[in-house]
Design a protein around this nucleic acid. Structure first.
Lengths: 129, 129
DNA sequence: CTACTTGCAAAAAATTTGCTGCTAT
DNA sequence: ATAGCAGCAAATTTTTTGCAAGTAG
């Protein structure tokens, strides 16, 4: 089974690489549609799945799912209120030996931390009053 | 707005605390139903949401969502193939200053690492042959 | 009492799939 | 030529919501 290079795939990868944020499938779709109006949302889903298998991108779990165009290990902080995900310039040391000892094969991974972002903290305060 | 202690809530919390794994909502539901057959799945969802707000438990993002009864910061490794989540006895040092500098209020967090578990690695191999 | 909670069924939201025609190789 | 893809619409899966009746405080 071989992977074909279609213009949809080229465009999807190209656009993912340019991203400076972490869009949901819908967000990414509407972004892509401007460049290739005929594309279907399922093409996004199908290819993002495939690209993840190939280690070219990464899925950021959650509902809705979000995508990460940078395949290199790095860190994310996710807001538990609004779902926004930002890159986190923190140092994290990971004991890879312990993980391998459990039998796991480390995938291209990102470390995800949960928190509440500034805008959401302010919203919460407003509601409490 | 006050939180009432209903028998559903007592049971849900009690069972969560006993868990030695990380069930999906459905899995947890069928577990609970044995003890209180009348309960609805939406009661699980509604209360797990509430308990998370109160910091009593944690949601593990993904589809389907999984639950963590241990509210203390610790680490997870998730299999990207089957979705299973296991506790990870690794040391991770986290630069909390960098996170606060971004304006984030750190939530009770767990660090999540992605990988491929042993059974899934074996499945993959079988398919390739 | 009365405000919060439940269970049900129905709705909404997100993701996946079946199929038919298209296209890279 | 032909295996793999795309687009569409429909199906599935997961989660949320409206509402009437029940119950804790």
């Amino acid at each position: 089974m071989q992977y074909r290079i279609t213009k949809q795939r080229q465009l999807i990868l190209e656009e993912m690489r340019k991203l400076h944020f972490h869009p949901t499938a819908e967000e990414f779709y509407s972004l892509i549609k401007r460049k290739l109006p005929g594309m279907g949302l399922c093409t996004i889903y199908r290819n993002l799945e495939k690209f993840q298998e190939l280690g070219l991108i990464e899925k950021i779990q959650g509902v809705p799912i979000r995508f990460e165009g940078n395949p290199q290990p790095h860190n994310h902080i996710k807001c538990v209120k609004c779902g926004k995900v930002e890159d986190l310039p923190a140092r994290i040391t990971l004991d890879e030996k312990a993980i391998k000892a459990m039998g796991y094969q480390l995938h291209a991974y990102t470390v995800e931390i949960n928190g509440i972002c500034l805008p959401c903290q302010k919203n919460d305060k407003t509601k409490e009053e």
